[in-house]
Design a binder for these strands. Structure first.
Length: 600
RNA sequence: GGGGGCGUGGUGUAGCGGUUAACAUGCCGGCCUGUCAAGCCGGAGAUCGCGGGUUCAAAUCCCGUCGCUCCCGCCA
């Protein structure tokens, strides 16, 4: 139906007879002359329909409306002097139509397909996602996503990886996120679970001698949604045998860097090699294990100074072993009037309280013409102590210094909240991609509620070899081999060296509160596999959706997924989920036990 | 489970106790042979998400509810 696309014709094609097909992006009716911007995935080409040259085509063009599907036959022609459109790649030519066929009509779309600035209610876009996908930004995102996955496949193929598919119907995993369950008809009362990740299977592939495996894998987690989280999402899942942490990290770093340079040359990487941040430092300085390092706003521990001031809260906290930390906001005080500053301080304090703090102290650093430190707690610091403080945090005139003191976890939360607040003010550059590695996570994190250790990544993570002995003596101090790849505050991926030794794996279960019977029932196949010559192995999993989202420069994962779910986990186009009919449920031996509808 | 935001012609917004509910765009009709966010003229189109309440009077205030969204919890 089409001999050429709507994006490719140029001056050199003049005189070629062509047939184009696509959608009416816009129609401009001049009376005897009708212009139609015909759009397909590759671009827009202007079609000219002249009443005198082609009366039949003109009559059809007269009836055409936006989003009608047309097939146009005609001659490529260089546009008359002075009518070229430099905005359009095809703007030097147009098609003089001699025949137009309406392949299909279209109702007036519920929102604009042909406008860049279209700020449309997202629910409406989702209800008509097939129309939304026609819009230029979505077309670009879909292409970018394809190119990203294609690049990854080619890259890993060149590195001798092979792609292996693992089952979608698999086994429930009692740890971690909630599973999506699928009832088994053949085995009444039994359930498959959709994989949260192919973790176990890829390790078994390593035991199976695949050595270098990857998969573009769909994964499922039944947890609440976020702007960067969907219940089903796509991972680049990857595993390698006979590697150490450094081998995986270096290959993965090269992949990340080459993706960015090849697919989005307009983006800049903040640093190569990627900065490596210890988990402990990430928490202490940024208050999170996925720091956005595009801006340098870090909490500094000043307990050793604050403990000697006269502010009772600080003194008591330091005595009780709680840290006092300072966040220096450069130039913030100078930018605000006294009234504004007091309001800002109130807002920040409320923010800190929401994060769990009891308060938030501040002082401002004087510029040269002013004299004193201002702010409620300035008076508690002697002159010498003030100088020591300013020196410790590198303060300059006009800075706002914020002070947090509480249990470490609360200080982390406040640091994170404040950093996110100031980040929003900074209007950071989306074209800057600040990749960094976070490493040396603890192997376990203490779970107060269940009084046990939880794996900080998962139960198959190998502890660092120098910390292996700590599993017996001080599991809380053992570091795992985990590495997370962070970009602009998003966790793009994570991985680790895995346990391939049954004895080590068996030590993990009691620590995380599992009996050996339970472990055997759930993971016996893993333990058994480890006994048949499991090679040392490790790997990584990337969130493809998040990666593409960063490459596309959108903060919303739904923009890079063709048919995403709403925050309520629904597809409001096709109306999923939906109720099952009685016969289906009966066949599966399922009875519903729904909460009572409240009676009015 | 919790906190915040939004919901007004097809679309995007304004209005925030008394308006014939405004504007832009789109849509329909007309004119127009070089437009390209075309232009000009005319027209249709909204019980202001839904339910209840306060009031002489509600798009506007209050309560509830539904939908979408952002965040916390949750996400090995």
């Amino acid at each position: 139906m089409k001999t050429r696309t709507c994006g490719e014709l140029r001056e050199k094609d003049a005189g070629t007879p062509v047939s184009l097909a696509g959608w009416v992006n816009r129609r401009r009716d001049q009376g005897g002359l009708i212009f139609i911007d015909l759009r397909d995935r590759w671009g827009i080409t202007q079609v000219v329909v002249d009443l005198e040259l082609a009366p039949a085509a003109h009559a059809i063009a007269d009836r055409a409306r936006n989003e009608y599907v047309l097939q146009v036959s005609g001659m490529v022609r260089i546009r008359p002097e002075g009518t070229a459109n430099p905005e359009l790649p095809t703007g030097d030519i147009d098609i003089v139509a001699d025949e137009i066929v309406i392949l299909n009509k279209s109702k007036t779309p519920p929102f604009y397909i042909n406008r860049e600035d279209g700020n449309v209610d997202e629910a409406l876009r989702m209800r008509h996602r097939y129309l939304d996908l026609r819009r230029e930004p979505m077309q670009q995102n879909m292409v970018l996503r394809h190119k990203t996955v294609k690049f990854i496949r080619d890259f890993l193929d060149a590195e001798d990886f092979i792609e292996v598919e693992t089952p979608i119907l698999f086994k429930t995993t009692p740890e971690g996120a909630r599973d999506f369950l699928v009832p088994s008809r053949l085995q009444p009362g039994m359930f498959y679970a959709l994989p949260q990740s192919p973790q176990q299977l890829k390790q078994l592939l390593m035991v199976g001698g695949i050595e270098r495996y990857f998969q573009i894998a769909r994964c499922f987690r039944d947890e609440d949604l976020r702007g960067d989280r969907q219940p089903e999402f796509t991972q680049l899942d990857l595993e390698m045998s006979f590697v150490e942490r450094e081998d995986v990290m270096q290959l993965m770093e090269r992949l990340a860097s080459e993706i960015v340079k090849t697919l989005t040359p307009e983006k800049r990487l903040i640093a190569e090699p990627f900065q490596r941040i210890l988990y402990r430092d990430a928490l202490e300085q940024y208050g999170t294990d996925r720091p956005d390092i595009r801006f340098d706003l870090r909490a500094i521990d000043i307990s050793h100074i604050a403990g000697r001031c006269a502010f009772p809260v600080f003194v008591e906290n330091v005595k009780a072993g709680k840290p006092v930390k300072c966040l220096r906001v450069p130039g913030k005080a100078a930018a605000l009037s006294g009234t504004q500053l007091r309001k800002e301080a109130r807002d920040l304090e409320n923010m800190a309280r929401r994060a769990g703090a009891k308060g938030l102290a501040y002082i401002t650093v004087p510029t040269e013409e002013e004299g004193e430190l201002r702010g409620p707690i300035g008076k508690f610091f002697s002159v010498e102590l003030k100088l020591e403080l300013l020196d410790a945090v590198g303060a300059e005139g006009g800075d706002l210094l914020l002070f947090m003191s509480d249990e470490p976890e609360i200080v982390y939360a406040v640091t994170d909240a404040l950093r996110n607040h100031f980040k929003a003010e900074l209007q950071l550059d989306d074209n800057l991609l600040a990749f960094c590695w976070v490493i040396d996570f603890p192997e376990f994190i203490w779970d107060d509620e269940h009084e046990r250790w939880d794996p900080s990544q998962h139960m198959f993570t190998m502890p660092l070899s120098e910390d292996l002995h700590l599993l017996d003596s001080d599991p809380g101090a053992a570091r795992g081999s985990q590495y997370d790849l962070i970009c602009n505050g998003y966790e793009v991926g994570g991985g680790s060296i895995r346990i391939h030794d049954r004895q080590i794996q068996e030590k993990i279960f009691p620590l995380i509160g599992q009996t050996m019977e339970h472990a055997m029932a759930e993971f016996g196949h893993m333990l058994e596999a480890f006994e048949y010559g499991a090679p040392p192995h490790g790997g990584m999993a990337w969130g493809i959706d998040r990666l593409v989202m960063l490459l596309a420069g959108t903060p919303n994962i739904r923009e890079v997924i063709a048919f995403p779910k709403t925050q309520g986990g629904a597809d409001i186009m096709a109306h999923a989920p939906s109720s099952a009919d009685g016969a289906q449920l009966k066949e599966l031996h399922i009875q519903l036990d729904l909460p009572e509808e409240p009676a009015d």
